[in-house]
Write a protein that binds this DNA or RNA. Structure first.
Lengths: 228, 228
DNA sequence: GTCAACCATCTCGTATACAAAAAGGATGGA
DNA sequence: TCCATCCTTTTTGTATACGAGATGGTTGAC
């Protein structure tokens, strides 16, 4: 075989363990397995009608994504993500989005900007329809578009990964009074900055747009006194 | 069990598969397994005197760190990291280090700055001794210190991870004429900026300091016509 | 001679088996 | 009554077994 043939693994042939990993991730994030809970190989294997092998492989993926801790010879435990850690992740997310915005302002083509405008229009429709869940989805698409327009695939990947990791904590803020409208207004400014090639503006606006999510999360915490 | 007890997994009890993963990683990066090469479960199992199970677990880790591609039902192949991807990673590294520098300038304590000065002094000694390998090590310590002084643990982790990923490509530049001296001079400026709380300066200097590595890498490529 | 289909072989993904280590409880002594 | 030690039990980590899917070569038809 020639060493320079890149393997195509775009095939959707996901193995059983992959599916289980995704499912477990969802279940952890939605709270079926609370922080500190131990994930039992045997019972999960029974539940999913598979042997321990796929379960263990799923555990490995979860451990690497930081969702669980793997204590050798003792088991797998749902990681206790502290509020501090989440705030730290929001801070990094703000910076990464700021970078994406800056690069996007410098690199986005006219057609790319048009795509961004359409994504934003979809957000506006969701807002006007009062559909918070839909807004949440369209908002995600909007941001992923900015990641892509950074023109840096690696950056896009990393941004998407962190975005995904913060998903449950962003979702908590959906029903905060007035947040959607404010978010929408910020979007307008961001699109304008990227469209006009205002790199500094896009950077600043995006950083603020995301940083406010971290702050909202903090407020939510102290109001509800939830231990995350 | 109380849900709020955080598991301590600082134990050095690394399983066999962890060790193998580290070893394989090293062997891939040092070129024993060239890009595109297929990693055979059976022969590796035999070589390491273990069964296929630990080998497969090691493969999973490598796949998630992006070092290999896992083609379902077909095998595991060393990933062909293209020059473009590496340049992209250097660009992200430059931005992340810039962020670390900015935050460090805002947050570093006097003792932290002193530690940074000492790390820099170690770099200088290595330079004066003409020991490129030692400089490389001390330089790594210097940068890790800046990551830590960002005051954001998550950021520190991510920066460390990318730093590690880029290690082999940074190492290629070690023997470029004059680079060590130039690097050292840049360090001085960075320390000064952080020490004086000059956030913008630290950000700008660190971005340039890392970006130049990407450029050097590019030059090296075109000179040597190496396919990475 | 070329192309397609079929079959043998190999490898992967999963199931099961076994050994070692850790956790928990019981027993004995202080 | 409390604590330490030993043993049992549970559970992990690894080895092995087996079925399914992919690969490559061969054979046959056109």
């Amino acid at each position: 075989m020639e060493p320079d043939t890149q393997i195509d693994l775009s095939a959707g042939a996901r193995s059983r363990s992959d599916q289980i990993a995704g499912l477990l991730e969802e279940q952890i994030l939605t709270g079926r397995f609370p922080p500190g809970a131990r994930l039992d190989e045997a019972s999960l294997a029974e539940e999913h009608r598979v042997s321990r092998t796929p379960i263990r492989e799923a555990f490995q993926r979860l451990a690497q994504s930081g969702l669980v801790d793997h204590a050798p010879r003792r088991g797998v435990f749902v990681r206790q993500t502290t509020a501090v850690e989440i705030m730290e992740m929001f801070e990094v997310m703000a910076e990464i989005e700021a970078i994406c915005g800056r690069l996007a302002a410098l690199r986005a083509t006219e057609t790319a900007v048009e795509a961004l405008r359409q994504a934003n229009a979809a957000c506006r429709r969701a807002l006007e329809a009062g559909d918070a869940d839909l807004y949440y989805e369209e908002n995600g698409a909007f941001h992923r578009l900015i990641y892509a327009q950074s023109g840096n695939r690696y950056l896009e990947q990393e941004a998407t990964r962190l975005h995904r990791r913060l998903k449950p904590y962003r979702r908590m803020q959906l029903h905060l009074r007035g947040r959607l409208k404010q978010s929408m207004a910020e979007h307008e400014g961001i699109v304008a900055a990227i469209a006009s090639g205002d790199a500094q503006g896009a950077e600043r606006l995006l950083r603020a747009h995301v940083a406010v999510q971290g702050e909202k999360f903090h407020h939510l915490l102290s109001q509800l006194r939830i231990d995350v």
